[in-house]
Write a protein that binds this DNA or RNA. Structure first.
Lengths: 278, 278
DNA sequence: TCTTTGTTTGTAGATTTCTTTCATAAAGCG
DNA sequence: CGCTTTATGAAAGAAATCTACAAACAAAGA
């Protein structure tokens, strides 16, 4: 919100800019002001303040205050949460957690629920499931394997390009290949997806929208995160991929209902011996 | 805020409870209602709503809306974001994303920054690093390996209990073992940590506080997440472990400064050939 | 330079929204 | 049962917000 105001400063008229300056200067104080008060302190008329509010997709001043309150509460560092060279650990920690929260927020508003439901259906119908991922997405694939293993369906994960191709080529109709890639442009991943499709299997891609991989896939769950690429490490996109898989696994668990409860109980029992008492 | 309302439900009068019920039922809609509307829908009078607001340290209805807006933005669904059996995908999605946001929040406020700094120091001083994790934490260990590989220090990850023991026993002073466990009670993990300590290596535990593993470790980064254990899958704790590792890797990158930039450039270059154009 | 046109701004009043006061009703208590 | 206390809503009053309109201003062309 504040960032939005700041960026549209030059599209405002002179008086409205006065209002903007005041809001940017002491946003939290605005929350406890009436429109008359704000108008007075910013040295403009009340209607001007009102018009200012409307330019930021609020129906009026009270609504503007509401939106402002929300944005102030949600992300103190809404703005450039970029990690700077001079940051010490505390700042890095604060910025990364903020960014994580923001990313989840963005994911929440950007993902199409219908797609998720269709993805769950794919899982439920699958005779067997294979997860493909390389690099950072490799560990996501492995994690997914762990989670879906708990259902009574054969599930494998490959990080190895060669094994992926072999497995993909050997797939059949009714099988599901889940291909995970941050960039959506990793050649090996696109090829594996293509092989799987050609072999008659369904392909679920978890990747960026509108990429070579998403175009090959039967269904794509889009995970678009504006990554701070200078960090070279797709941290947030990987967190979001995991979150999406968590949703899917929970959805499948739901849909399957209780028929696999005994299966879970056995797994849990098997784990007991590996744990120490507290 | 919502939690506060809920907890003081029994101290409210009958009519005020009606208001409370409505607010708890659809908090976000309240934000766009006038006091008259809310009074009507909750089937009480306007002054009752006003009195209700004052009970929660607001000066009046508008102020209450403001406070509510802020609390909604910061912690969505403060209450039990438990996934219920009857939930469809949209609800599961909403609840899990909310829970993720909350978990990050909690992590942010619970983690001791000093500990993080010492952890970064451990990494910087390490001659070589080994990540140990099993089950769900195994993929976290693998992911960590990927990230820390980008520095110029030998780094390995083991998900295999036997390999972990062997490697741990063979470690030397100046080496670092990072042991990742959600429960902190996995026998094999505690044993590996103990072996590593006895061999003279430092042990960094990423686990719950006050567990067998944390007691064995040189330093523990506490990741306490109140997991919905009925889901059987430590989803959130794994996300938080990853986030902690992200912070650490960023911290190390920072501390190391630019001396490993050429190393990164070479890695990046090597990856180029694997990607398709968009 | 003057007009014309369009935009910006503020005044004043209308309207909505909120708050206070007070009378009535309900509940608790001896 | 009657008294006290508390809870509730009607209505009036106060405050805040919004709308319509006109004055001021700026920009462009004659």
């Amino acid at each position: 919100m504040l960032a939005q105001i700041e960026s549209s400063l030059d599209q405002l008229s002179r008086s409205e800019r006065k209002v903007a300056a005041f809001v940017l200067g002491d946003a939290s104080r605005v929350l406890s002001m009436s429109i008359a008060r704000l108008a007075q302190e910013a040295d403009v008329s009340e209607p001007t303040v009102n018009r200012f509010c409307r330019t930021f997709s609020a129906t009026g001043f009270p609504d503007f205050k509401l939106k402002l309150a929300q944005s102030l509460a949600s992300g103190p560092t809404l703005m450039t949460a970029m990690v700077a060279d001079t940051d010490a650990i505390p700042e890095i920690f604060a910025k990364l957690t903020d960014k994580a929260i923001r990313s989840v927020h963005d994911l929440k508003s950007s993902i199409d629920v219908l797609t998720l439901e269709r993805a769950v259906d794919l899982f439920c119908q699958a005779r067997q499931v294979a997860f493909f991922g390389m690099g950072a997405s490799g560990s996501v694939a492995r994690d997914a394997q762990h989670k879906f293993f708990r259902f009574n369906v054969p599930v494998v994960a490959y990080e190895d390009g060669l094994m992926q191709r072999m497995h993909a080529a050997a797939m059949k109709t009714g099988d599901l290949a889940v291909v995970i890639s941050h960039t959506g442009r990793t050649r090996a991943m696109v090829e594996a997806a293509t092989f799987a499709r050609e072999a008659g299997a369904s392909v679920l891609a978890i990747t960026r929208s509108d990429t070579p991989l998403s175009r090959v896939a039967t269904l794509t769950v889009s995970v678009d995160v504006d990554e701070n690429t200078e960090l070279y490490i797709p941290m947030m996109s990987r967190l979001m991929q995991l979150l999406v898989l968590d949703v899917l696994v929970t959805g499948v668990a739901q849909k399957r209902g209780t028929d696999f409860q005994p299966h879970l109980a056995r797994i849990k029992h098997a784990l007991n011996g590996t744990r120490l008492p507290d």
